[in-house]
Amino acid sequence: MTEKTFMAGFGGQGVISMGQLWVYCGMKEDLEVTFFPFYGAEKRGGIARASVIVSTEEIASPLVTRPDSAIVMNMDSLPLCEANLKQGGTMIINSSLVKVETKRTDARVIKVPCNDIAEKLGDVKFANMVMMGALSKATGAVKLDKLEAVLMSFFGPSKQKFIPMNLKAIEEGMKAVG
């Protein structure tokens, strides 16, 4: 099994964190993993993209050019993901911010209103975790069953109180895929 995912959004949406947590969990599930970020110099609002690969085999190129799955966190990222997603790949769209239909009729398209779900949970900042839950459910590549332990080391002590909310957001994301 090899799942190559391309994640795209704008800075501040937690795209980079989502990529890191995805491979961190993958590693804890005994997979080979690679994470390569690409982001602008801006603190917020610039582009934020991540190439992430999880595999049961040795990983060849760390660069994801024809992803098996693409995460579209905002409107600007849609054309980019439409261009690189492989034939018949999975596209998960944050439908809270992306209101148009994709041109990729071959793709398995999953729409998840990540921002709306996160806001209902209490904070829009959890939108990335909602998306990661959806990615896990849709691909099955990373189960995320070790996420709680991963978050314990990922977050500093002052942020550990947010762990239950993160786990809830993952669960809601999984449910949204149905």
């Binding site: 890191q20 491979v23 590693m27 080979e32 993993v33 690679t34 994470f35 390569f36 970020p37 990983i59 760390p62 660069l63």
Partner: peptide, 9 residues
């Protein structure tokens, strides 16, 4: 830069 910037196990 790729080896320096990417994360792996």
């Amino acid at each position: 830069g790729m080896i320096g910037q990417m994360m792996e196990g």
